[in-house]
Design a protein around this nucleic acid. Structure first.
Length: 488
RNA sequence: GCCGCGUUCGUCUAGGGGUCUAGGACGCUGCCCUUUCACGGCGGUAACACGGGUUCAAAUCCCGUACGCGGUACCA
């Protein structure tokens, strides 16, 4: 089994593209096959210089490694279509020779004019097809000599697929079953553009054939051009690979997850944006895998290996799926909590230093341990500034509501109690505090709240005693005293 | 318009004729845990698009309608 992910470097890798790559990867791993990356850069007008690098970087971040492709090589290279022009030309010529394709010399104005002539309410988008090709300037309407003369003269031309009406083109799709089209509805697709480069359709089938791709897994937007591909395979006497068209990822409101549409709803579209937001690659992959596929049981948290061990195309859904950012967040939380706190600390250390100054890895790890249950992203550690610096203000509402007349005195009293503590750890602090509460017959809340507020400035937060241990005795006493004075 | 694909809780889905008074997850929500908040645990909320068939029996099969999505480029 050989599969490929064939992105076009016309922009940064899209989240939907990553899912397509993932499904290809999973299928290959599941069957011990080969995963190929092929860059489909046949459109010079839409070429984006750093897009290929972005695709490479994004796949690498996600951990989707390929056995063959640009940079790593392979027996079927080159893997950039711009470097395979000669082969497409050869195949195009072969198709013309076989009478399956023809030269066309029409200018875009002439094509527009033809479309204008045929446009009606019932036929808003006329095609260049069996119905109209005989009114056009092509090797079907021109004499052989004329065609040769134009070619020799260097006139611009395109090569078009000759689609005969009256045939039914059908194929088995691995996720949709039998799909069939009437060839009448297929136009004489351009195979070679006037710049000499192939269109997607030609390059795609040539490469899939030459690279011995066995399974084509791509988005549903390709479903309606598949008959063209089947016709091409047939014309060349090649057998078509197994097709599998994935349901599209839709926006939460149902429409297409276009860049504009998505951004309006706060959904990142490029993988690069997910990286910047701090998503865990495993979480994103896990989420994406389940967007259109399921393992057939209730398991949701699965790493790449686990998914690869059970992946199959027949468990891929057929209906479009809506993107749910909240569920992605949940996945990210799950993955974050499964991570080693030291690793997280190491990764956020620069952020902490940048924001709060020079803290030790140990201190940051302690902060992470306190905060992990309430973080969605690693960077959320910054939402607890009080683990690094004294609060500069106290939450007004809480002060008004819960800061009692004796709170300051209590703070002072407990301060001196803590002062005498010989070992400063969460358990000792807790024991000390609770002992005094009992001795003085106080309510636990009457002291817990003032302490928390003095330490964090906020009415809620992570475990109080753990936090006190992390901050250290001096810092805790200083903050308590400060609040006692300021809020008196 | 035409062609294609699709349609189970708000969302992702299980389900492939009887075991479905339709299961799981996210979300929302109640209770419990608890020094707060969060986490967690235990509950709750909520769906077979509609209409015809076929069948003893349909969420499951067939047809139609509606709706959604995709395509209709010398873009991929």
């Amino acid at each position: 089994m050989r599969v490929r992910f064939a992105p076009s470097p016309t922009g940064y890798l899209h989240i939907g593209g990553l899912r397509t790559a993932l499904y290809n990867y999973l299928l290959a791993k599941r069957h011990g096959g080969v995963f190929v990356l092929r860059v489909e850069d046949t459109d010079q007008t839409r070429f984006v210089a750093d897009a290929e690098q972005d695709i490479l970087d994004s796949l690498s971040w996600a951990g989707l490694s390929f056995e063959e492709g640009p940079g790593v090589g392979g027996a079927f290279g080159p893997y950039r279509q711009s470097e395979r022009s000669a082969r497409y030309k050869e195949v195009a010529e072969e198709l013309v020779r076989l009478g399956k394709a023809y030269f066309a010399f029409d200018s875009s104005e002439e094509i527009e004019a033809m479309k204008g002539r045929h446009t009606t309410a019932e036929n808003p988008t006329p095609r260049y097809d069996f119905n109209t090709r005989l009114e056009m300037v092509n090797s079907l309407t021109l004499s052989e000599a004329d065609v040769k003369a134009r070619l020799d003269r260097g006139d611009e031309f395109v090569v078009r697929l000759l689609v005969e009406p009256g045939q039914v083109v059908s194929f088995q799709d691995a996720v949709r079953g039998n799909v069939s089209f009437d060839s009448q509805a297929v136009d004489d697709q351009v195979l070679v553009k006037s710049d000499g480069l192939p269109t997607y359709h030609l390059a795609n089938i040539v490469d899939d054939h030459d690279m011995q791709i066995t399974h084509v897994i791509r988005g549903e937007e390709w479903l309606s051009s598949t008959p063209k591909h089947i016709l091409l395979y047939n014309a060349l006497g090649w057998s078509a690979p197994q097709m599998a068209h994935l349901p599209l990822i839709l926006s939460p409101t149902g429409g297409k997850l276009s860049k504009r549409n998505a951004e309006k709803q706060g959904i990142p579209v490029s993988v690069q944006q997910y990286i910047q937001h701090g998503y865990e690659p495993g979480a994103l992959l896990n989420f994406l895998a389940l967007l259109g596929w399921n393992p057939g049981n209730d398991q949701e948290i699965m790493d790449l290996e686990e998914m690869a061990s059970v992946f199959s195309l027949d468990r891929v859904g057929q209906a479009g799926v809506q993107f749910d950012l909240q569920k992605l967040s949940w996945f990210n939380e799950q993955y974050l909590r499964a991570k080693n706190t030291k690793d997280i600390a190491e990764s956020v250390l620069p952020l902490v230093k940048d924001r709060f100054g020079d803290y030790s890895l140990g201190h940051v790890e302690g902060a992470v341990k306190l905060m992990i249950e309430r973080m969605t992203f690693e960077k959320d550690i910054l939402d607890a500034p009080y683990l690094f610096e004294a609060p500069t203000a106290y939450d007004e509402k809480s002060v008004q509501k819960r800061w009692k007349t004796d709170s300051s005195d209590l703070l002072t009293a407990f301060s001196s109690e803590f002062e005498s503590l010989s070992s400063w750890d969460a358990a000792s602090i807790e024991g000390c505090l609770k002992a005094k509460v009992e001795r003085d017959a106080l309510g636990l809340g009457s002291i817990m709240f003032p302490v928390r507020l003095s330490l964090t400035g906020e009415p809620s937060g992570p475990d109080l005693f753990g936090m006190m241990e992390l901050l250290g005795k001096n810092e805790v006493l200083a903050r308590m005293q400060k609040a006692a004075n300021e809020l008196r």
